[in-house]
């Protein structure tokens, strides 16, 4: 890493703009984190309305298949360098929605995630802790999920298509039941 990159990474880590797009119930932890009580602006993190100007994408909890489609659009619109934070159990292994027909299990099958936070939901301290960790990783140049996405684009796309572009029922017997309905 050249000195120039080091310098750039130093500043990148100190002004991460967060896409203001909340998916699951974890969004409720963000207002205290953003506002004066925990005040994440101390770390240069501010909410940003459009994906093209944002650096971090928070996946705050469960993602239904329908939301996942929008999240993938959004992620692809963001310009590199970009980072993804997975909040809570649901993004890790399905969480309480582990057997749901509409909610995905592992987030990192569909987009690369840089940092996972345990909890259901993580408290603001845990979120700030994760931001601190992400900042260090960015400054060291370790968080490179976006490169992973480009490198393994086919794998990610195949996984996404598996849930978005089905052409036949998942459960075989289902077809005849639907017909009779």
């Amino acid at each position: 890493m050249s000195e120039w990159d080091e310098l750039v990474n130093y500043f990148r880590g100190r002004s991460m703009w967060m896409l203001h797009y909340c998916t699951g119930c974890g969004a409720i932890e963000l207002p205290p984190t953003m506002t004066s009580r925990w005040d994440m602006e101390r770390f240069g993190i501010i909410p940003m309305a459009t994906p093209r100007q944002a650096d971090i994408l928070l996946i705050t909890g469960y993602l239904s298949i329908k939301t996942l489609k929008r999240v993938v659009y959004t992620y692809e619109q963001m310009s590199a360098p970009k980072w993804v934070l997975g909040f809570g159990s649901c993004t890790i292994n399905g969480g309480i929605y582990w057997d749901s027909y509409g909610v995905i299990q592992n987030l990192d099958k569909y987009i690369p995630v840089d940092l996972y936070i345990a909890g259901c939901m993580p408290r603001p301290e845990a979120i700030l802790d994760a931001f601190g960790k992400l900042k260090k990783m960015v400054q060291k140049g370790e968080a490179k999920g976006y490169e992973k996405y480009i490198k393994n684009y086919d794998w990610y796309k195949a996984n996404q298509d598996r849930v978005f572009r089905r052409t036949e029922p998942v459960l075989r017997k289902a077809e005849e039941v639907t017909k009779s309905a």
Partner: peptide, 9 residues
């Protein structure tokens, strides 16, 4: 309650 994990490259 704090535990984070970073899957590296």
């Amino acid at each position: 309650y704090i535990h984070t994990f970073h899957p590296d490259l």
